[in-house]
Amino acid sequence: MDSVSPWLVILGMAVVTVSTRLIGYWVLGRYQLSSRTQSILEAVPASVLTAIIAPMVLATGLAETLAAIATLLIAWRLPTVVAIVCGVVVVVLMRNVF
């Protein structure tokens, strides 16, 4: 293993990463999907995004949790950009408090 060049490792990383990007599409893109499968796939985006942010929102600290709630409440009524900016401002303020 001593002699593996960096670019070879980088190439290996690229091969496995591009494979993950293509495999799901190739395997499921071939078939005419049943409405059951489609309904399940439509739950994927929210599931993936929720899994990514769950630890940050729920298990980091009070600042992050409150900022997340603020973002959600603002997004309910106001434009998305306003919600995002307010969320970031709240987290910065709260981090200086806690």
Partner: peptide, 18 residues
């Protein structure tokens, strides 16, 4: 590790397919 971190792409590609 790279493969594990990026496994979610499989689900994402499948969801994007249709």
């Amino acid at each position: 590790t790279t493969l594990m971190v990026n496994l979610r792409h499989v689900l994402m590609g499948a969801a994007a397919a249709p």
